[in-house]
Structure formats: C-alpha cells, structure tokens
Nucleic acid binder design. Structure first.
Lengths: 339, 339
DNA sequence: CTTGCTTTTGATATCGATAACATTTATACA
DNA sequence: TGTATAAATGTTATCGATATCAAAAGCAAG
C-alpha cells in the first residue's frame, strides 16, 4: 500500500522548470525577488508534479519550526477550547501554528508531554497552571524559548504568566451566596491533588466561610472524568443526604453544576427555590438550561488572546521587551437563574 | 528574549560522554544494541546538558514523520472529540502522534488545511466526510499515503472509508416517530450546502416522509455556529409558530435538540407530551437533561478506533493488505424520554 | 557603449540526526 | 587457546530545503 515512488522534491521542480532549486525555493514563498516570468514557470512545474513543500526539511534548514506549543488539561472542556481558539487566532496572523497537547490533569503526563513537545522545537510554549514536576520545570527553564503559564498565577512563575486567581474567583460566588443571606453553603469538587485550579476554588470556599464564621464542612469530592456531569449528580445527592438543610452549593465547574441541577430536578428539589447552585466557567450549555446556571466567567478567550500577544511580542525580539511578566485577567460573576 | 546560546546537540552529548554521536543516537532509543554501561554514561551526559532530541532532524533524517493527520469539522463537538480520542488512543501504541486540524465545515478551508498538513509529511491522513474540492481530492490522491474518509460513506471514495450512512441513521428516528403513530413531523438542520452529513440526515427525513406518504414541509434551517444551542431554540420557535400542531421534530444534532427542548420549556410546551424531540449524536449532556434526549448513537469512538486499526494495518505493509476498503458502523437509536 | 547600480539567479555549505556499511570488541564453544 | 559468532561502536553519506555569498543579467544615465 505504501507507495514506493518517492514524492517529488524541489530539485525535481527545478529540473522541470530549468532553474536552480534555490530559485524554486524563492519562487514558492512570497516577497522574495524572483522575476514574474520565472515564478510562473516554476509554479506551473510544481503544479504539474503535484509538488508540496516538505516543511520538515524547510524548518530544519531554516532553524525555525513555525509553531508554538500549548498544553491544556482536557480536550472536552469548552473553557480550554475557548482559550486555545483565541490563542490560535491570535497567532495565525504571524503564520504561527499551534501544537496542542492534553495533560489529562496529570503532572506526570504533563512532564512527558512537555518533553515530547520540546523535541519538536517550538518557538514558544504555553502551559496551563503553575504546578509541574521538578523535571518538567527544569525542561521548561532550559528550553531556551519563551514560557507562559496560564489559568493561574503561580507563586514562583517560570517566566511569564497570563492568568487569574482561582481562589479570588470562587470567592465571588460565595460572597454572592452570603449576600443573599445564606449560611449553610456547600462545595462540590474533584481531586485536589491533581488539579490546583480546583483546589484553589475549594480554598476560596474555605476562606470565605471562615471569614464569615461559617462552617465549611458541606463538601463532596468526586472522581472527575473529563467532561462529566455524573459527578455533579452524585455530589449533590451525597450533600443533600448528609446535610438536607443545605441552602446553596457551588460546583467546581458548570458541567458539575449541570449534573447537580438536573439531579435536583429528578429528586424533586427545586433550584433555586429549595437550593441554589452555582457553577464555574460560563459554559454555553449553562445559559440554556432551565434554570440557567449562575456562574463565574474567567475570560477564557481573553487568556488565549493575551498569551498570543505576549508571544508575538517576545518573538519579535527588538531587544527591549517591556511587557509585564504577569498579566492578570478579572473573573466576573454572571448572575442567572440557578443562584 | 530569544536566547542566542544554541541548544546542545547530539554531538555535544557524544563529546561529553566520549563516544560517537551514532552511539548517542542508539542509546537514546530503546531496543538498540548499546552496552548498559555506555547507555548509562550517555544518559548521564544528556541529563547534564539538558539535552532533548530534535525530532525535526530525526524525522527528516529517518524519513518518517511519526504522525498521522486528521481533519474534523469542529473542535467544540463532543462527537468528533470522541472519534479523535479513540483514534489517538489506537495509534499511541505504535508511537504515532495525531496532528489535528479543523475545517469549520468549509471545503475551501479543508483544502487549505489538507495542503498544510501534507506539507508536514504525515504517514497517513484521515478526513471527515466525502465532500472535497477538486484540488483537495487531487492532493489526497497524490499524497502517496493512506487516506481514510470517515463519518460518511462517499459514493466515490478516494481510498479507504470508515463511516456510516447518515441518511439511514436519521431514518431510524423518523421510523421511530411514525411507529408511535405521529404524522406531523418536522426537522431542524443547518446549512446543507456546507455539511453533507447534515444534508443526508435531512434527506433521510424526506425519504421517510415520502415513503409513508407524509409531508416533509415542516423544516427549519438555521445558521449553525459551532457548538450552538441557540439555533435549536430559534428553530423550534419558528416551527411551532408556523405549524403549531407539529407532533415530533428531529434535530440534526443533540446540541440543537438541547436548545429546542429547553426553549419548549420556556414556551410552556411539554416535551414529550405536547411535542416529541429527537437528537443526533448521543452527546453526554443529552443524557442528563430533563427530559433526557432520545438520540441516534453513531458510534463516534468506534469510527476512530477502526480508522486507527486500519492505518496500523496499512502502514505495517506486509504487502498483502486484505482489509476491506470500506468499513461501515451501525448507528442505533437510543430511546430516552424526549421522544 | 561603457560605467555603476539594482535585480535576478546560481553554487556551495549547512542544519542534526540516522541508515548503511565497516570495524572492533566481547563471548561461546570446540 | 584459537576460531566462529554475536554484540557494540565507529565512519561516511545522506535526507530536502535554505542561508550566504558570488555571479550574471537588466537597466539608467552620461
């Protein structure tokens, strides 16, 4: 099946067109000095042979890979997808491609992934979060390219940061609950040892409760598969069983909130009259559920946009880079029906 | 910002370890004959220098790129994500990476994307659907690598196919409506000129209606942004306004169905008592909505799995490839509450 | 039609790893 | 201990494009 006949090379095109391969190389990219007639001749020869540039050779020769790497925890997450999309759009103008990898919320997997990505010699790398293995940190520090950590504001940044405080973001929701007079408040989250963003949202819960002299015992930690609503259903069942008088619950993501709200409906519990439920992330599906989900918008797309701008600036390299090392975005509460 | 000091190369590692670079090359990959002591010495030197293999050079030299390209219409679609995930998992064993591109449902964009991907010399390419521009077809045919079309069964396949009939799949839903005694049946879809899969589902509607002597006029075509629920809401509003006695509606995807069902709830129309609503794709969110969404499961993950298996077989190249050129998967109806 | 400049084209070395072949070193067994 | 065989390591050429420098062609003005 694999064809034995080799694909045409630039030399083949050069031969057919009766020029040197260097001229072909020039003719095939814009803004290089080649006479109009020669360029047309070459284009014709290339079309005839069905020639497609071999970027591996091209990149290898020129020393530029033409792409930027980014790691995100999960593919099935509209929030990260928004970041990636904005990031990708922002870099497209500069003819920079995006190479994407998924860590599945594992730092070990992240280390492996980062190594894999660095092997391809990206021109910059963006990672989600500030929690890394020691070796991963080392690899990033020694990579010789700009490194941006996002979706978080690490205490000890590796290089640049575009993020927000998950802790402060989640406090917005709890302050909202408390401002409505609620006291018996809960939280549904995941495995905090793996996901520092989730952990910080939980810490936001503890902090706010403590600040107002309230108990932070009403908690359920679920095993979170990527893009899962089921954990939300389990979580709310367990909370309502153990503490039936719970007035408000924040979920670590809108997907969890979705599972929790729909489970309440099945249990005959009215949201928001009986219990208020808040989410995190401003996913589109939350807007259309009945009741629509009150949530925290972290500006996922903005993060991607800022990261792209930062990279373009860092790569332009006029020597005097003056942008701040840390860019913070401002999460906001989106008040809807569920809380 | 861009560091001037060059990253270490294999030769640097070789120097430090006191061996030839060929030995370094061998030591850094498994299953090659290098003595244990030498390998350790080299590993130590590599770690010391923070050396990471340059795969561009490696791939260029060996002639293998080590990855497979796949194009899908949209990133924000759980179905395609399932296919990609299964595909990716299936290829991981063979140390094949997946390079992913999004066509955004545009054949022109697809052409551009395919060219871009081929420039990187993948070892095989998977495209979604069988609708391509002429030039795109040509590029694929001349690529010299295995080509697999998925999510559809084109009349004139380029090479291999792993898909299903969208037409037959959607008929399942309409036959289900009709078996329940419904006659006034509608369809909500998107721009058929761009999405052949959506068009075939619409044709399934027309065929089934005609076969049973029913009218196929109750149709609403919406502008579909990727991952959008709003069009479902608009679609059902327009259908219920023009034909208030409609008994059942199938939506071209579960996301549309989601928008339609939640809009019915806002309009005070009971689903399924007043009107039945079916979806397509078996998205997770449909399972948790109240009412849960009756849908068609097309085996998205299975498609990815089969495609991966096929590619592994085609690349193994023992000369006598015997697998069928066309593999069909069997869509099934998942009966839930909404219809 | 010659001088001096710009534009276009060509020759050669090179990027970093690996394939293919050659050679040396270790190991087994008579 | 010597020969046969296997394992480990080294040498050289090479993948396909591009950077760099050099040469040729085109062109304007005197």
């Amino acid at each position: 099946m694999r064809n034995k006949t080799k694909l045409p090379t630039m030399a083949d095109v050069a031969n057919l067109a009766g020029v040197s391969s260097m001229t072909v190389s020039r003719a095939l990219k814009p803004d290089t000095s080649v006479s109009k007639s020669t360029r047309e001749k070459i284009q014709k020869a290339a079309d005839e042979l069905g020639y497609v540039l071999d970027t591996r050779a091209s990149e290898f020769s020129s020393g530029k890979s033409g792409f930027v790497a980014i790691t995100i925890p999960s593919i099935n997450n509209g929030n990260f997808a928004d970041t990636v999309k904005a990031f990708s759009d922002g870099l497209a103008e500069q003819d920079l491609q995006v190479l994407l990898g998924y860590t599945n919320y594992h730092v070990d997997r992240e280390e492996q992934l980062v190594e894999q990505l660095l092997k391809k010699r990206p021109e910059a790398i963006v990672v989600t979060g500030g929690m890394h293995t020691d070796r991963c940190r080392l690899l990033l520090e020694n990579s010789g390219i700009p490194v941006i950590e996002t979706w978080d504001v690490p205490e000890k940044p590796i290089d640049h940061v575009v993020g927000f405080s998950n802790l402060e973001a989640s406090e917005l929701m709890f302050e909202h609950f408390i401002a409505q007079g609620h006291k018996r408040i809960g939280f549904i989250g995941g495995d905090n040892s793996r996901d520092s963003r989730g952990r910080d949202r939980y810490l936001g819960f503890c902090n706010t409760m403590e600040k107002h002299g309230l108990s932070s015992e009403r908690v359920s930690f679920q095993e979170l598969a990527p893009f899962s609503m089921e954990p939300g259903a389990s979580g709310i069942r367990s909370i309502m069983k153990e503490w039936p008088d719970t007035e408000a619950v924040m979920c670590v993501s809108d997907l969890i909130a979705y599972g929790a709200i729909t489970e309440c409906q099945r249990m005959g519990i009215n949201v928001p009259d009986d219990v208020k439920i808040g989410g995190f992330g401003a996913y589109e599906l939350g807007q259309f559920l009945n009741p629509s989900i009150t949530t925290i918008d972290v500006g996922a797309a903005q993060i991607g946009k800022f990261a792209a701008e930062k990279i373009i600036e860092l790569l332009s390299d006029d020597g005097n880079t003056k942008s701040a090392k840390i860019v913070k975005t401002e999460p906001t509460l989106i008040k809807r029906q569920s809380a």
